[in-house]
């Protein structure tokens, strides 16, 4: 069954550094919330599909993040590994309203 998303306010846009990320704790696992150079916000499970590296600590470039542990490059919009690597981490819907950032979590 399709459950409606529960939109949770997690903070202000400017709380997240440009080309950087912050972490959000969630019972189902940590979430990484990224802000790209063009001020777009993305959220992924904070676990690299390779060996669970914390993606929130990677270098953000374009709409991708490079995992800090072994340099896999993960697409921020889909959570999928790019290039030769294969794997995917879950991505979480995000909405920006004014200067607030909301995550769409399954209620």
């Amino acid at each position: 069954m399709h459950r409606p998303l529960d939109w949770k306010d997690i903070g202000q846009l400017t709380d997240i550094p440009v080309q950087g990320a912050r972490r959000v704790e969630h019972p189902a696992g940590r979430i990484a919330v990224f802000r790209t150079i063009d001020d777009q916000i993305f959220a992924l499970r904070d676990e690299c599909p390779h060996k669970k590296g914390p993606l929130s600590e990677g270098i953000v470039h374009g709409h991708a993040v490079t995992c800090p542990l072994h340099n896999w490059v993960i697409d921020l919009a889909t959570g999928a590994a790019t290039g030769p690597d294969e794997g995917c981490t879950g991505h979480i819907p995000v909405r920006v309203e004014g200067d607030r950032v909301l995550l769409g979590l399954v209620g």
Binding site: G11, V24, L103
Partner: peptide, 11 residues
Amino acid sequence: ARDFRTLATVE
């Protein structure tokens, strides 16, 4: 120091 903190905890 702000950037070291967890941004939020949601249930």
